[in-house]
Amino acid sequence: MATGGRRGAAAAPLLVAVAALLLGAAGHLYPGEVCPGMDIRNNLTRLHELENCSVIEGHLQILLMFKTRPEDFRDLSFPKLIMITDYLLLFRVYGLESLKDLFPNLTVIRGSRLFFNYALVIFEMVHLKELGLYNLMNITRGSVRIEKNNELCYLATIDWSRILDSVEDNYIVLNKDDNEECGDICPGTAKGKTNCPATVINGQFVERCWTHSHCQKVCPTICKSHGCTAEGLCCHSECLGNCSQPDDPTKCVACRNFYLDGRCVETCPPPYYHFQDWRCVNFSFCQDLHHKCKNSRRQGCHQYVIHNNKCIPECPSGYTMNSSNLLCTPCLGPCPKVCHLLEGEKTIDSVTSAQELRGCTVINGSLIINIRGGNNLAAELEANLGLIEEISGYLKIRRSYALVSLSFFRKLRLIRGETLEIGNYSFYALDNQNLRQLWDWSKHNLTITQGKLFFHYNPKLCLSEIHKMEEVSGTKGRQERNDIALKTNGDQASCENELLKFSYIRTSFDKI
């Protein structure tokens, strides 16, 4: 039985969820670079991206490699990797027998973001014989899940209580170790020597080791999670996991709180800001991140802002960003909400898709409305799209047979046209069989910064309504002859009103 693990408890099935942008060198404390989270699957090609990484700022997932063999891993080693800020997950990587050479110096898994409450997941690794993470000293947050690894031993010899604050939620089941077939031998045991430290858990006094050649490092209890030197002297209180010299914040392997210019500090002093819960960055760093993602459509890219001495992905609820200094300031009234469309555009074809934009005031991208039916549609669209004030790209209304009016965009005031449909149009209306009105132009103002209007096959939309939009939106004169079809717009509506004058002759039985 794995020490510190839980057996036999019912657990939810383990679901495996399925960018080499360097964020800056980590400095003297770390020998390499800070790398983003990685999802490495199918083959070993991307694994080489770990070569210079000291910190993975995010998670590391290595999974679904069915053609790899043990010899493929023999020359692979990433000794610079010290810390993973989120979680480490391995799933069905064939041929991998140990992690001792792959990650010989991995010391800390912070667990800032977890995989279903777990910071370390080893699942269905069919050839893994031992973990071998002999320098792993601290899992700051989260638990361990090690399950269905039929060859995995050296679990009962690990004292997880020396690595985690609590072992109650560890789930370590259905491994070879369960069948008591392992016969784990710690260093020196074969020669009758006791080389590794022994600890007591559940009444068992057991030597602690990761492999037959690597003991588990056990520091004096007084050192807590700070770690200790090879001689057993406690590291500085700002260290986490390990250090090369005692009581020196510049000799830590990793930091308990924050890293700044080669030393570990309790908090980031001005003019620095907390970033990702582990390091200090200056304003320029946060500003660069903001600008890199301002026009990016890459998933996970955030326009970072500053709030409460932190550089964070977005302002919290009730705050909006001051564009001059990136500071989050309290909103006066309802907060603006910028919604970034991942692929640059979004099609609204149902109430469900409209709900995804609920509360958005600025759309960074283009909207395509293609709704053919739905219950209580006008009210639903207004509830979900009615706060949109600005669209950076274009607005396209296409084959939306259920629409009679666009009044559900009740606050839309600006279409920038930074991206144009077919390279020309910022407003595009095609084949809307029941569209009769755009907006009530006596109450609604709309500016279209650039781009043209396109109207074709809107049989109940009168040309007068379209011409009014040209005047109000500032697009009059931009359109070419064929942009607004004269014969297919309003051709099934009563669009022309003329005053009919009647004269009559009164007659009676005795007068003409």
Score class of each variant (00 low, 15 high):
residue 169 D to I: 14
residue 329 T to R: 07
residue 212 H to R: 15
residue 277 D to W: 07
residue 255 C to D: 00
residue 241 G to T: 06
residue 117 N to F: 03
residue 129 K to G: 04
residue 65 M to V: 05
residue 232 G to L: 09
residue 193 K to N: 11
residue 230 A to M: 10
residue 302 H to P: 10
residue 81 L to G: 00
residue 211 T to G: 00
residue 289 L to A: 08
residue 296 S to A: 13
residue 222 I to E: 13
residue 296 S to Q: 14
residue 195 N to Q: 12
residue 220 P to R: 12
residue 295 N to A: 07
residue 166 S to M: 07
residue 256 R to F: 11
residue 120 L to V: 08
residue 257 N to T: 09
residue 119 A to R: 00
residue 288 D to K: 12
residue 153 C to E: 03
residue 200 V to P: 06
residue 41 R to Q: 01
residue 110 R to Y: 06
residue 143 S to H: 13
residue 280 C to P: 00
residue 29 L to N: 06
residue 191 K to A: 08
residue 198 A to N: 06
residue 321 M to L: 03
residue 265 V to S: 09
residue 104 P to D: 04
residue 310 K to T: 10
residue 61 Q to V: 00
residue 194 T to I: 12
residue 185 I to Q: 05
residue 333 G to T: 04
residue 183 G to V: 14
residue 111 G to P: 00
residue 183 G to Q: 07
residue 32 G to A: 05
residue 145 R to T: 02
residue 204 Q to R: 10
residue 242 N to S: 11
residue 234 C to M: 01
residue 281 V to M: 01
residue 240 L to T: 14
residue 305 V to W: 04
residue 153 C to A: 02
residue 180 E to W: 14
residue 326 L to E: 03
residue 282 N to E: 14
residue 99 L to W: 02
residue 241 G to K: 04
residue 216 Q to S: 02
residue 39 D to N: 15
residue 266 E to K: 04
residue 228 C to Q: 02
residue 30 Y to I: 00
residue 154 Y to M: 03
residue 82 I to A: 10
residue 223 C to G: 09
residue 67 K to P: 01
residue 43 N to C: 05
residue 262 G to P: 05
residue 116 F to R: 00
residue 325 N to T: 05
residue 284 S to N: 10
residue 67 K to Y: 07
residue 263 R to P: 02
residue 165 D to E: 10
residue 294 K to A: 15
residue 98 S to P: 03
residue 32 G to Q: 09
residue 95 G to R: 05
residue 209 C to H: 03
residue 263 R to Q: 07
residue 249 P to E: 11
residue 248 D to M: 04
residue 260 L to A: 13
residue 104 P to Q: 00
residue 73 F to R: 01
residue 175 N to T: 05
residue 152 L to W: 01
residue 210 W to A: 02
residue 323 S to A: 06
residue 166 S to V: 14
residue 140 T to H: 05
residue 58 G to L: 00
residue 100 K to F: 13
residue 256 R to Q: 11
residue 273 Y to H: 13
residue 323 S to I: 09
residue 225 S to A: 11
residue 105 N to F: 04
residue 296 S to F: 08
residue 34 V to N: 02
residue 255 C to W: 01
residue 124 E to Y: 00
residue 31 P to S: 12
residue 144 V to T: 06
residue 250 T to V: 09
residue 336 P to C: 02
residue 204 Q to V: 06
residue 102 L to S: 00
residue 28 H to V: 06
residue 42 N to H: 00
residue 278 W to I: 00
residue 58 G to W: 06
residue 48 H to Y: 13
residue 334 P to W: 15
residue 264 C to R: 01
residue 57 E to R: 02
residue 328 C to S: 01
residue 114 L to W: 01
residue 61 Q to K: 15
residue 122 I to Y: 00
residue 284 S to P: 03
residue 249 P to M: 07
residue 65 M to Y: 03
residue 70 P to S: 07
residue 184 D to Y: 08
residue 213 S to V: 07
residue 214 H to R: 02
residue 202 N to H: 08
residue 306 I to D: 11
residue 54 S to A: 11
residue 209 C to A: 11
residue 70 P to M: 12
residue 102 L to G: 04
residue 164 L to H: 09
residue 108 V to W: 10
residue 112 S to I: 14
residue 120 L to M: 11
residue 156 A to W: 07
residue 289 L to I: 15
residue 335 C to V: 01
residue 336 P to M: 09
residue 116 F to G: 00
residue 270 P to G: 08
residue 110 R to K: 07
residue 309 N to H: 09
residue 194 T to R: 11
residue 302 H to T: 13
residue 43 N to H: 10
residue 170 N to S: 07
residue 191 K to S: 13
residue 317 S to L: 03
residue 285 F to E: 03
residue 91 F to V: 01
residue 81 L to P: 00
residue 189 T to H: 13
residue 189 T to Q: 12
residue 107 T to G: 02
residue 137 M to P: 00
residue 275 F to Y: 09
residue 206 V to T: 15
residue 222 I to S: 13
residue 29 L to H: 15
residue 61 Q to P: 00
residue 147 E to D: 03
residue 249 P to G: 09
residue 326 L to W: 06
residue 171 Y to G: 13
residue 315 C to P: 07
residue 265 V to K: 06
residue 252 C to M: 05
residue 229 T to S: 11
residue 271 P to G: 13
residue 320 T to Y: 07
residue 120 L to S: 02
residue 175 N to M: 04
residue 241 G to S: 08
residue 115 F to Q: 00
residue 87 Y to E: 00
residue 265 V to A: 08
residue 214 H to E: 13
residue 49 E to Y: 15
residue 48 H to V: 10
residue 287 Q to W: 14
residue 144 V to E: 00
residue 79 P to M: 06
residue 191 K to D: 11
residue 257 N to K: 04
residue 232 G to D: 15
residue 324 S to K: 05
residue 328 C to Q: 03
residue 134 Y to A: 06
residue 334 P to L: 14
residue 66 F to N: 00
residue 218 V to G: 05
residue 134 Y to W: 14
residue 331 C to E: 01
residue 103 F to G: 00
residue 69 R to P: 02
residue 227 G to R: 02
residue 322 N to F: 04
residue 310 K to W: 15
residue 117 N to Q: 04
residue 59 H to S: 04
residue 106 L to S: 00
residue 230 A to T: 08
residue 37 G to S: 11
residue 174 L to S: 14
residue 50 L to M: 07
residue 185 I to H: 06
residue 50 L to K: 00
residue 194 T to L: 14
residue 132 G to F: 01
residue 287 Q to F: 11
residue 336 P to G: 05
residue 270 P to R: 10
residue 248 D to R: 03
residue 63 L to A: 01
residue 130 E to A: 12
residue 149 N to P: 01
residue 116 F to Q: 00
residue 37 G to K: 12
residue 98 S to I: 02
residue 179 N to G: 12
residue 128 L to I: 09
residue 80 K to Y: 15
residue 237 S to D: 10
residue 54 S to D: 02
residue 67 K to S: 04
residue 130 E to R: 09
residue 258 F to M: 09
residue 122 I to C: 07
residue 59 H to K: 01
residue 67 K to L: 05
residue 324 S to R: 07
residue 62 I to G: 01
residue 140 T to W: 05
residue 58 G to K: 02
residue 160 W to S: 01
residue 82 I to S: 08
residue 327 L to V: 04
residue 300 G to R: 13
residue 302 H to S: 08
residue 220 P to T: 15
residue 215 C to M: 07
residue 136 L to D: 00
residue 212 H to N: 13
residue 212 H to Q: 14
residue 204 Q to F: 13
residue 140 T to G: 07
residue 213 S to T: 06
residue 231 E to N: 09
residue 100 K to V: 09
residue 184 D to M: 15
